[in-house]
């Protein structure tokens, strides 16, 4: 059952990923990307990490793809042929870079040794399933599966606290920067139009009076 589900989900995911890259219409590519994010969430469900799946949907489908849509809408003519991108000169280098990244990630995943207490991805035969031993109450695996939100929160606040804070700092900086960039234009218009309404009659002066 899980195998068939995995094959179906992986197939849909690969298809949508490919159509993201190959689609010539930007909005359709963004939609395919959202579909791909969704299949990643489905894979998390198969791995019994429904907390991560919900986060994936919330952040990537609900926020990132909406932001993508916003970016497309606000920067280009939305409904014309502007959205269609032709064959790009960077196609071949793009393919090469993609394959190299894939190779590096694959190497890293299969050669990963893990900490002493953790299971390694490389030693697949020794790695127990996430759920094994989860039937006994009180086992850490069981609590990890059943209350993943709590476990993730504790880990974020203890072991990964520095990375967490750094990410927060980065996001805050990005937020402040975005506000600064967006605000400057408005400030300039306001400073030119200093305070009280500027000479109002000017635009109406040349109009004929009834």
């Amino acid at each position: 059952m899980a195998r068939i589900l995995f094959l179906v989900i992986a197939g849909v995911g690969l298809t949508s990923a490919l159509s993201t890259v190959l689609s010539r219409n930007l909005v359709r590519a963004a939609v395919s990307l959202a579909g791909f994010f969704f299949t990643v969430a489905c894979l998390f469900i198969l791995l019994e990490a429904e907390f991560l799946a919900a986060l994936q949907v919330l952040i990537y489908v609900g926020a990132v793809s909406i932001l993508l849509m916003f970016g497309i809408m606000l920067t280009r003519g939305v409904q014309g042929t502007d959205l269609v991108s032709g064959p790009s000169a960077a196609r071949l280098p793009g393919i090469v870079v993609g394959l190299v990244v894939f190779a590096v990630l694959g190497y890293a995943i299969f050669e990963e040794k893990g900490l002493r207490t953790q299971y390694s991805w490389g030693a697949l035969d020794e790695r127990t399933a996430i759920a094994r031993g989860s039937k006994e109450p009180g086992s850490p695996l069981r609590s990890a599966v059943n209350n993943m939100g709590k476990v993730v929160g504790v880990e974020l606040m203890t072991r990964y606290v520095i990375a967490f804070e750094l990410a927060g700092l980065l996001l805050t900086a990005a937020l402040v920067g975005a506000v600064a960039v967006a605000h400057r234009e408005e400030d300039e218009t306001r400073s030119t139009g200093s305070g009280v309404p500027p000479e109002k009659p000017e635009p109406t002066a040349d109009k004929p009076n009834p």
């Binding site: 429904e50 907390f51 919900a54 919330l58 489908v61 609900g62 909406i66 849509m69 993943m148 939100g149």
Partner: peptide
Amino acid sequence: LPSGVLYLIAASSLSPLGVFLAGW
């Protein structure tokens, strides 16, 4: 679900995408 509230938020965050696609 052990993370039901998060699931609720995630499920409700799907609808803006549909609304945008309908309009576009």
